[in-house]
Design a protein around this nucleic acid. Structure first.
Lengths: 324, 324
DNA sequence: TTGTACGCGTTATCAT
DNA sequence: ATGATAACGCGTACAA
């Protein structure tokens, strides 16, 4: 390769890495040689010498089914991917059933990537902490991480849930239940808290809280339980649109009207709302922007910027449709 | 690290790679040193010296939204991931909007992975051909690749579509339409062919074929067009469950009954069927097994086995439910 | 501007 | 069984 262009390997390297100090003629010669030989620099060697991999990992400590089942993730990743497209980093998606196994951990710690974005983090999962000490790391969306050196992009879930619940209260609901997310996630806890806050402020007896596990099936299961045990419920705050899309058909199937008999407010404003027969009133969190921001932070920090805010809280807003 | 255990780097390497030729004492010493120092071998160096990355890429030439929108992919990936879990390869998911861009191509060609699995390949996309010459490659599911040195795991889509359409014919449908997949995919073309074959054999005039683009929205759009232009249609073969889940509500909404007024048969038997109000009769393809097989082939070939069949066709079977 | 030479952290090939 | 030592392919001071 070096000889092919009639220059030294050093010059080839310079051209490949866009160094300004190369004679146009040499550069051209190298470029043609590259084209002719279909030369592609070896990543391992490059990485070994430069201590960079030009790759970023998106780790999702969730099993594949859950991950691919919730359109919420689609929005976040879309934001990440689009931001990364105009960088020279490639995105490597690592979906790990439950906590990342040792294999993946060694992959990350071994220098396979320059930075990590984590979404859908579970409380108590400390397996990623060691990685945070090795490279920049950004936690996103439904994540809260105590005492770790990482960046966080999130929304105020307590507030988001409050907005949703307040809507229910305002429209006259007196018996308000909640279908919660996976209790192993901080976001789910926070949303229950926000829901409870509003009810107490309104001097209303909190209705039942059933864990819907952030899945469509879970949402259906939860609403069935609520309908069976607490027939007087007239409003329900569902902690994710996906769960709402599972719960709604169950309600309608029983001949109950939405929002007439039971008002419903979701959370996320993810593409999952499209699967809802009656347009879902929900709390929008800017998922795509959050993804873009996470990627942006990582790229920025990786380029040497040290002055980024460690935590960014994005705004939530009620999207009024028909279900409440 | 080497000194820490009082042995040479060579011995450390042997221990890390589980060589049998090491004295138990040395091995133990190395292991404790590894634990104490939190040592993790550098991937780049290892890869550079061994010419292996111990990583496999799953490339999906599709935009994120489509990818995350079709539960069909979930099954395939699940199969791949589970098979890979008991290997020492990590799975790196690369979703590329449209054709893989140069960045990803250079990533693959640069030796970042040892092998590649491709799903959702589009006709005419030759960008991956150069990669196939560099490392083992397996095309899966909805893919057909002419003149390329790669493994293929697929179903007979013509036959699958025939089975579905025959069902429609058998139950007495006389005017049978089809909602097709993206015409840029071989699977979509094949399914239309299978549908047409049966109609011609039954001496039935083929109904309209509308492109539903393998999306839920596309399915809804397609059935609307069919209903508007060809009100006499009494049966429809939908080339994916996801599209069927989009088309079904439209039919029901118009007060038409399924299968009474219009019988419907889907394809995939993916988790998307669960979103269908009337249980969907569909053609099952063993997506998860196909994923597992693809991973298995790759791991096997990577371990030196040269005698694998280049092509494996998996069976399809009609799953009879209520919609037809 | 260009080339030389060393170093990056492992594995692999030899001796021992 | 173990330890030198040479690759592995590229980036990069340093010299020219």
């Amino acid at each position: 390769m070096a000889a092919r262009a009639g220059v030294s390997r050093a010059t080839v390297s310079r051209v490949v890495n866009g160094s300004p100090k190369v004679h146009p003629d040499s550069a051209q010669a190298v470029r043609s040689a590259i084209a002719e030989l279909g030369y592609v620099p070896n990543r391992a060697a490059r990485s070994l010498a430069s201590h960079q991999s030009h790759a970023i990992a998106l780790v999702v400590p969730e099993d594949m089914t859950r991950f691919l089942g919730d359109a919420y993730f689609a929005s976040v990743i879309k934001g990440i991917a689009e931001r990364l497209e105009r960088s020279d980093y490639v995105l490597s998606l690592m979906v790990a059933s439950q906590a990342p196994e040792p294999k993946m951990l060694r992959y990350l710690a071994g220098g396979a990537v320059d930075g990590v974005v984590v979404i859908s983090h579970h409380i108590g999962d400390r397996s990623l902490y060691q990685i945070a000490g090795l490279m920049p790391m950004v936690f996103g969306g439904r994540a809260v991480v105590p005492g770790i050196d990482a960046y966080v992009v999130d929304v105020n879930n307590v507030e988001g849930a409050s907005i949703a619940t307040q809507r229910l209260v305002d429209r006259g609901c007196r018996r308000i239940a909640s279908i919660a997310g996976s209790m192993s996630m901080q976001s789910a806890l926070d949303r229950v808290a926000g829901w409870r806050e509003v009810l107490e402020a309104a001097d209303l007896e909190p209705g039942p809280v059933i864990d819907g596990d952030y899945t469509m099936h879970g949402g259906a299961r939860a609403i069935r339980e609520i309908l069976a045990e607490y027939p007087d419920v007239d409003g329900v705050f569902v902690a994710s649109d996906l769960m709402a899309s599972g719960a709604m058909p169950v309600v309608l199937e029983r001949g109950l009207s939405i929002p007439g008999d039971i008002a419903m407010v979701g959370y996320d404003d993810s593409p999952a709302v499209e699967a809802c027969e009656v347009p879902l009133t929900t709390v929008r969190q800017p998922s795509e922007e959050m993804g873009a921001l996470m990627a942006d932070i990582l790229v920025d920090v990786l380029s040497g910027n040290e002055s980024r805010d460690r935590t960014t809280i994005m705004p939530t807003v009620l999207v009024e449709r028909d279900s409440a």
